[in-house]
Nucleic acid binder design. Sequence first.
DNA 1: AAACAATACGAACGATCGTACGTAAATGCA
DNA 2: TGCATTTACGTACGATCGTTCGTATTGTTT
Lengths: 211, 211
Amino acid sequence: MERMNDDKPSPDPAVTDGRLLRGARSRRAVTRHAVDVASAEGLNGLSLGRLATDLELSKSGIQTLFRTKENLHLATVDAARDLFLDAVVRPAQSTAPGTARLRALVENWIAYAEKPLFTGGCFWSANLPDFDSRPGPVRDALAHQRRDWLTLISTELRNAIDAGEIRDLDTDLTAFQIDAILNATNIALRLDDKNATTRARRAIEAFLTRP
Amino acid sequence: MERMNDDKPSPDPAVTDGRLLRGARSRRAVTRHAVDVASAEGLNGLSLGRLATDLELSKSGIQTLFRTKENLHLATVDAARDLFLDAVVRPAQSTAPGTARLRALVENWIAYAEKPLFTGGCFWSANLPDFDSRPGPVRDALAHQRRDWLTLISTELRNAIDAGEIRDLDTDLTAFQIDAILNATNIALRLDDKNATTRARRAIEAFLTRP
DNA sequence: AAACAATACGAACGATCGTACGTAAATGCA
DNA sequence: TGCATTTACGTACGATCGTTCGTATTGTTT
């Protein structure tokens, strides 16, 4: 049986239009490299010319794709979030809620900062300190992503409490502390601190085991 | 009675030579402002021209004082440490070792990040993420200062343990956690998080009270 | 007194930045 | 088949960057 309103084929132009597809592909290639650069040298270390020479494109070609530098920043921030979700968050969603999922998140995060997914380590540890004093849409986007991350941890902590896996603690406060430990671990890793990961595991594990 | 070897009047030229005194004064004025700029926009946000217009000096005049940009960075890093020691560490040295001094350090630090002493908040929270992936003397200096700060906290924790004020905990691990909380609090303050300071106090106080 | 040292300025350099504009090629739509 | 849209490139503009050089001023030393 056909759909009732088949007068609405409405094929999404973003999926069918070859021009838009090509543009999206190009943008993805640029932002993927931009995330690497920004994780190491900050979003301000990005420049159209720098990206152009790195990717062997023309400076004005890149400018056509993003029009302005702030748009490039925002696109890079979005790309970082997507990659982070793929590498850290989504793989953990297959585990059980509560401490199991929290441990998966932490392990994925440590791997994400240690391997690292981005050449300069954690994208937010590198760029939030840069933009937290700089009002504008970039700061807003980074702050929003941070908020989402903290909420994610807080929610899993609540799941763990409800399941009786851990003691009844302040989920927001603990999420804040776990995030603080992870960020500090990222810096320690960048400074070649050998004990960084084991220290992070020990500190966080203290929250995930009953007293 | 006179000193044995009074053939060594050796007046320090840096104290008596008017030219060097003038230079030191000028350098201090520049670095004081440079710390403010760097705390808000990072050391890379510094530029000779920017500092010159801000302080109504000539660009080449500033360059005469520091010769190279890296020297300016290093001088700024040194100035930040001096101001931090005066504002946070030294006032706490008059309190008793152990938890009392730790609480004084934390309170001074919170005030330092909240008021703030530097317009952009904590200098190291802003610049360590920028330079941790960038080998060179600036990174080394920042890393060394971070190490000193962690050692300071760790030492006071040991004093508190020896005095029986707190339980026997891993001082390095706890110092790492306290520092992590403070850095995260600095970001939260920059993002206008109202609960930042009380949350920091609660989290840290958990380490300073017996279980 | 003359010789030297340190600070300060002005001018100029090559380089890179973000952006604007014109043009060409490819693609979709009428 | 025309016409609009999107991507891509080349060029050029004004601004700012770090650095070099020459010069004047002030202070110290001999």
